[in-house]
């Protein structure tokens, strides 16, 4: 059974239907990419899965439990972390406090400290700047912080929304190496990206989204060879 199963999901914004009944799944240990143009509904899907916005129809099942109607703050403690679009850090809290907030749903103090150590180990920059307000970090550092904060909740699945947005090519590479690292330590990843080339390069499988519908799905490396995808998203 898949770790995350989304069936016939529909989402409305007022009278406008943004997601018109999509189904997809993610197996444990996989990186699955959702690619598509602006306004295709990628962010909406992530926000709906993580419970930030409600769905109007369909079901979302995470590890065998129906989470369709469960509100966002409860889903985190079930092992799903969400890194929202645009590096949303708590700008006025320090880096350390931001990371502590990531472990908000956990009670075990000693283990939180251990996770914090791991995060600092992987992102030494964050440890250097732990007392600095997060708003003063550079774009790349804020993305690291957002990822570090997600790791603090010890997730089994991370939803990543446009992690490469607004970053220099060098930093994009770095961010993708962080995604690889998360994958290596056993975390499954649902990745939303406009940078289709990078996303398909790292993902196991991918779904192509067009104005609220899934138009194509399959193995990521096969998609890299697909003529339609090449033309529409890879600019080849």
């Amino acid at each position: 059974m898949a770790m995350l199963e989304v069936k016939d999901l529909k989402v409305n914004y007022g009278l406008i239907q943004a997601i018109k009944g999509i189904s997809f799944e993610l197996n444990e240990g996989e990186i699955v990419a959702l690619i598509g143009a602006n306004g295709a509904g990628k962010t909406t899907i992530l926000n709906t899965v993580s419970g930030v916005i409600p769905s109007s129809a369909g079901s979302i099942v995470f590890e065998g439990k129906d989470i369709t109607k469960i509100s966002g703050h409860k889903i985190v403690s079930m092992g799903m972390a969400h890194i929202p679009e645009g590096r949303r850090v708590f700008a006025n809290l320090s880096v350390y406090e931001n990371l502590k907030m990531g472990a908000y749903t956990r009670k075990d103090k000693a283990e939180i400290e251990a996770t914090l150590k791991q995060v600092y180990e992987y992102f030494p920059r964050l440890e250097e700047r732990k007392n600095q307000p997060a708003g003063t970090l550079s774009g790349g550092e804020q993305q690291m912080l957002a990822m570090g904060r997600a790791l603090m909740s010890k997730p089994k699945l991370i939803l990543m929304d446009e992690p490469s947005m607004g970053l220099s090519p060098l930093l994009v590479k770095e961010v993708f190496s962080i995604i690889k690292y998360c994958h290596e330590i056993g975390i499954s990843i649902l990745l939303v990206e406009q940078n289709a080339k990078m996303a398909l390069g790292i993902a196991d499988r991918a779904y192509v989204l067009e104005t609220g519908n899934i138009t194509l799905s399959g193995k990521a490396d096969a998609m890299l060879e697909n003529d339609e995808v090449k033309k529409a998203y890879l600019g080849v």
Binding site: N47, S50, G51, V52, S71, G72, H73, K74, I75, V76, S77, A81, H82, I83, P84, R88, V89, F90, A91, N92, L93, M101, G102, Y104, T105, A146, R149, A150, M152, S153
Partner: peptide
């Protein structure tokens, strides 16, 4: 304060 700084991020770390 986390809610003030960023509502969506606050919800995504599990704050009610």
């Amino acid at each position: 304060m986390a809610i003030r700084d960023n509502r969506i991020a606050a919800e995504s770390v599990g704050i009610n």
